[in-house]
Write a protein that binds this DNA or RNA. Structure first.
Lengths: 146, 146
DNA sequence: GACATATAGTTAGTTATGCAACTAATTCAA
DNA sequence: TTGAATTAGTTGCATAACTAACTATATGTC
């Protein structure tokens, strides 16, 4: 028998992912307290565009582990907030490339600092080794279900 | 400096909790394939009632890390599906005690097996020690943000 | 070139989430 | 014992999730 046969009492927290939702909720609160009116989900899209601008919606799907309709509407709402713009690709007109606006650039440093502080607060007392184990496990879980 | 200063590239997966959502999504699919028409969120409420029947809505909030309106509506929908019943407490009439129906009892073994199989599939190649580390980290993160 | 297939994105419908404001029942204190 | 504060639960509103069905563009094969 493999060593990871699950005990019932331990099952739930793995399925609902309390830690990540707790961190996300805290970060959302910090945003609100600083009068930053975007949702965590919107922020997660911006986060990937800050790493690389001009991604297609499909690439945002893969990056954020969301499905296509979710990205469609997140981009809709980010466009309403004038934080991104859809630009049709010249080489393939099916594709929308998503570009950040100047307004989005302003948000970056503010929210990145906040996210890092929130994360460090959440991870107080957790060692680098433990984080490495968690990351590795997350990745393998994801691959197992791919 | 504490050892867990976060590198930007690692930040995102912690905040969005991809592993748990991936597992939840897979379990939801398995439910659907077996013509079990409940959502993961509804199942997570049943899960706690299977451990202990007759919890109040407030106790379900704590157990599932959800807020009160979420539980109100999950219980609404579970009641429509005739899987639970609200019973006003005799000692404190503000309190609704939530009781499982016979129909819910039928679901238990089916879905528990499915959940355990899904979890074991997701955790293939992950050792018991690694799971223990993840659990411990999850718990500390939650406590840090309490 | 024409038709089948695949890919990018949108729309519709149901469920869930978070917040804020609300009602009703209970408790506590003057 | 009355009136303030607390607690349990509900309702309304905006956003987001998944599925399925849809349009439009591109690709590939005969």
């Amino acid at each position: 028998m493999s060593g990871n046969q699950f005990k019932r009492g331990e099952l739930y927290s793995f399925i609902t992912g309390l830690a990540s939702t707790a961190i996300a909720r805290r970060l959302q609160k910090n945003f609100k307290q600083h009068d930053i009116d975007i949702t965590i989900e919107q922020w997660s899209v911006l986060y990937h565009l800050w790493k690389q601008d001009g991604l297609s919606q499909q690439e945002l799907c893969s990056a954020t582990f969301r499905d296509k309709p979710s990205i469609t509407r997140l981009v809709d709402n980010l466009e309403k907030l004038q934080l991104v713009k859809r630009v049709a690709s010249h080489t393939d007109r099916r594709i929308n490339l998503i570009y950040l606006t100047d307004k989005a650039a302003l948000l970056r440093d503010q929210t990145m600092d906040m996210a890092n502080r929130t994360l460090n607060e959440a991870l107080t007392g957790v060692t680098a080794d433990e984080i490495a184990v968690c990351k590795s496990v997350l990745q393998r879980v994801y691959d197992n279900l791919k």
